[in-house]
Structures are given as C-alpha cells and as structure tokens.
C-alpha cells in the first residue's frame, strides 16, 4: 500500500445553534486515500478548527452515529473511503442529514427517530435466525447453529438507527408524521401477525401507504436492512389480510 497522501479540500456545513444562518467553511488537508471521511473530519477538528461539532462513536459502522451527507449523498463517514468520493486535489462536501432538527455544524438531533423506534418497541438484540446471512439479501439463514447449551445465538440487529434512510426519503421530507423507512422496517422484522399494535400503525395513514416508492432508503442503507423491500412486503401482507387470504 502506497504511503502517498492526497491533498483534499473539505467543504463543511457550519451552523452554530438551530436558528443561526448556515455557511460553508473550507479546510484543505493532506490525507491518505485509504483513510475514511470521518478520519478527515476528526483531523480537521484536532488541528484546524476546534469549534467543529460532529457525531461519532464506534468508527466501524456498529453505532450509526456518524451519518452525514457526503457530496450530497447520505453516508456513514466512518466507512466512506476518501478515494471513493474524491480524487487527489479534489473536494469533499459535507452536510448534516436532512429532515432532522440541526444541533450544530454536522450534528442533527436523531431524537425523533429514536422516539419512533421506541414506540414500535424495535428489539435491541435478536436471535441469529431472525437475521440473514451475508450475501443472501434479506432471506433468513438456512441453518442457524445452536449454542452448546442448545440455545440460540443472539446478535445485535442490522438497523443501527443512523437516520440515513430518513434523510434520503422524499416522503419524510414533506410529512413529519410519516413513520419512515427505519420504523416500518422495525415493524416488519417483528411481524404484524404477532403484533396487532404494529399492524394498526403500519396500516395507518402515516404507515406503509404513505411511501412513494423512491427506494432511496434502501439505496443509502449502510446496514443491509433494505427498508423499501420491507415496506412493500408489509403492503403485500396487509392487502392479503384485506382480501382474506390470511385470517
């Protein structure tokens, strides 16, 4: 691996407090193309501008804190390689997620999403059999190994509540009450047959019927949740119920 660094200009959205006028600041730094956008942001904070605020925690896509828009597209900054979004001498534009209240600079308040996930009691850990194997889309695994005590392994669910899907969704942009992709996916994973309260929510005005099929949620999801597929599958299930195919 070459040790040669690139010169990259970060153009970063700045805003102090929710009510002030936003502007953009430019920072030109030397950075290795194999490093990640989040490393660049942290470098800028460490050496260029201590007033910069940004969210981050795990730096390896398990926490979902570092969602932002990189050149206009929703990304987790921790897994977005510099080389994949710019070139030597190029620029990277960073903006906060859309459709959430701004806290400052690159930070938004994900509270509304967490509140809705709480309302639909999205599980924090799930049995391994409820999560698909890699590379097989959203199908459940063929064979789930059991633990030595006969019990199933459990794991953290795919959805990391990063908010990228809500930021990318044009319906969420025009309807504050829309449950949104992540929340509908959380309903789908739990199952509407088992959860009448979730069926009522999914089959409501702000549920699956509000989706306008832009598929942006699945395009930006960094974590294999595929909310768009899940919303469409919920529609199918609900239609089947109405037509009495299902009791």
């Amino acid at each position: 691996m070459s040790d040669e660094k690139w010169t990259v200009t970060f153009i970063i959205h700045r805003q102090k407090g929710p009510d002030s006028q936003p502007h953009f600041d430019e920072f030109t730094i030397e950075i290795h193309p194999e490093e990640f956008v989040l490393d660049g942001v942290e470098y800028i904070w460490a050496y260029k501008d201590r007033s910069l605020v940004f969210r981050h925690a795990c730096h390896h896509t398990t926490c979902g804190a570092c969602g932002m828009r990189v050149n206009g597209v929703e990304k987790l900054a921790c897994m977005t390689k510099i080389a994949d979004v710019t070139q030597d001498g190029g620029k990277i534009k960073l903006e906060p997620l859309r459709n959430f209240p701004i806290v400052g600079d690159l930070v938004v308040d994900l509270g509304p999403l967490y509140r809705k996930m709480h309302e639909v009691h999205a599980p924090e850990v799930i049995p391994l059999c409820a999560s698909p194997w890699e590379g097989e889309g959203i199908k459940p695994p063929q064979e789930t190994p059991k633990r030595e005590d006969g019990e199933e392994y459990i794991r953290l669910p795919d959805c990391i509540e990063c908010g990228l899907c809500v930021s990318a969704c044009p319906t969420a942009a025009s309807d504050a009450e829309y449950l949104g992709p992540a929340v509908l996916a959380a309903i789908h994973i739990q199952g509407i047959d088992e959860n009448p309260d979730l069926l009522a929510l999914a089959d409501s005005r702000e549920g699956v019927w509000r989706c306008h099929s832009a598929y942006e949620c699945s395009a930006v999801c960094p974590s294999n949740v595929d909310p768009a597929w899940r919303i469409m599958d919920l529609r199918k299930q609900i239609i089947a119920r109405r037509l009495k195919f299902k009791k």
């Binding site: 597209v73 859309r98 044009p170 942009a173 504050a176 832009a214 598929y215 942006e216 699945s218």
Partner: peptide
C-alpha cells in the same frame, strides 16, 4: 421547520439513485 426544503427534496436530482430519479 422544513420551509421549502421539502420541495427541493422532491425535485432535486443531485445525489439521487435510479429509484429517486423515477420518483
């Protein structure tokens, strides 16, 4: 809170995938 942002998000093709462009 959105102002006219929602309108921009409905019609601005920048950064959109095929699904978004179809939308």
């Amino acid at each position: 809170q959105q102002g006219l942002n929602w309108l921009l998000q409905w019609f601005d093709p920048r950064g959109r995938s095929i699904g978004g462009l179809a939308f």
